[in-house]
């Protein structure tokens, strides 16, 4: 029952907070309610008024009404603390599943009043606080726990404040169009991957290989013509062949087939781990997935391409 109401409520909230890169906090998207201490204060206020009526104590009435007036004013002060702030979520860097994605939220205050103790978090109950001085920006980082690989929508972000008196809490839910890319969780494979290595593609090997000059040796029949050191031959120093490092077994194509017999998610994790290992030991690697093939390569961008392919598989 309660969860149904909660669901209805949040779908209503989401309708009012469209996903946009910048959200301006204003009347229509700021909510305000007393905190638990606000309710406590109300109780104390009622107690004071009853006691003052009974003892016909006008001093007590004064105290009660000062309290009431402070409560009334704190509605405006708390509300004002949020109003007019611009909230932007920056694009979040990809993370591996079960790691926390850090979402950078930027608060911009274009007004001339300072905004203190603005809480930013995934829910009102777990927020981190930042101050936003007048005409300045502050950033808050939210850590979003991830569990599954893939593209994850950034959930609604709560911006809340109980400043200055803690009697009322004003808050707003902000939604951003950005998503977090979550890579699969890397798990080392218990048995070595039967890598479909061994320069299947001759041309590619050579092309790659020719970049890594290693040493010279005497020409032997059958050496590729490209590897002959023609400059030395021209100077009549003899026929030499340029020798290249032996890549066989060190440049590999990681194939889905090698892990296909495992459960799908586990298989993906194993491949992820293999990709990371390859990258870390500065190998050249490619990836062969049922729907997609990533050509051999190396470097952070190549790694990202591979991991993204795995994440979205």
């Amino acid at each position: 029952m309660l969860s149904v109401i909660k669901q209805k409520f949040f779908s209503w909230v989401d309708n009012r907070a469209p996903r946009q890169t910048m959200t301006l906090l204003q009347q229509r998207n700021i909510y305000i309610l007393p905190t638990r201490y606000g309710w406590l204060m109300l109780m104390i206020l009622v107690l004071i008024l009853i006691a003052s009526t009974n003892y016909q104590n006008n001093m007590g009435f004064m105290a009660g009404f000062v309290l009431l007036a402070v409560g009334l004013l704190s509605v405006f002060y708390t509300f004002r603390n949020l109003k007019g702030l611009e909230v932007r979520c920056l694009k979040a860097a990809p993370v591996f599943a079960t790691e926390n994605a850090s979402i950078n939220v930027q608060l911009t205050n274009n007004t001339q009043s300072q905004r203190l103790a603005i809480g930013v978090g995934l829910s009102k109950k777990s927020v981190g606080y930042v101050d936003v001085m007048s005409q300045s920006k502050s950033a808050a980082i939210i850590y979003l726990p991830t569990s599954k690989r893939g593209l994850v929508d950034i959930p609604r972000i709560a911006c809340s404040t109980i400043f200055p008196f803690g009697i009322f809490e004003a808050w707003s839910w902000v939604r951003t169009p950005y998503q977090v890319l979550v890579y699969p969780k890397p798990i080392p494979c218990p048995e070595p991957l039967t890598a479909s290595n061994s320069g299947i593609d001759e041309g590619q090997t050579r092309e790659k290989g020719s970049e890594d000059f290693h040493s010279l040796r005497d020409y032997q029949a059958g050496d590729p013509i490209k590897q002959v050191m023609w400059k030395a031959y021209a100077r009549e120093r003899g026929l030499y062949s340029k020798e290249f490092e032996d890549y066989v077994g060190e440049h590999q194509t990681l194939s889905w087939d090698s892990v296909a017999h495992y459960e799908k998610e586990l298989a993906i994790s194993y491949l992820t781990d293999a990709v990371l290992t390859a990258e870390n030991s500065q190998q050249v690697y490619g990836l062969e997935l049922p729907q997609q093939t990533v050509a051999k390569g190396q470097g952070p961008e190549h790694l990202h391409t591979c991991l993204k392919a795995l994440a979205l598989m």
Partner: peptide, 16 residues
């Protein structure tokens, strides 16, 4: 509410 709402909130809207 009206008077203080006006004065307090106007402060928040004062843009640079």
């Amino acid at each position: 509410g009206l008077v203080f709402g006006y004065f307090v909130l106007r402060g928040a809207q004062k843009l640079e």
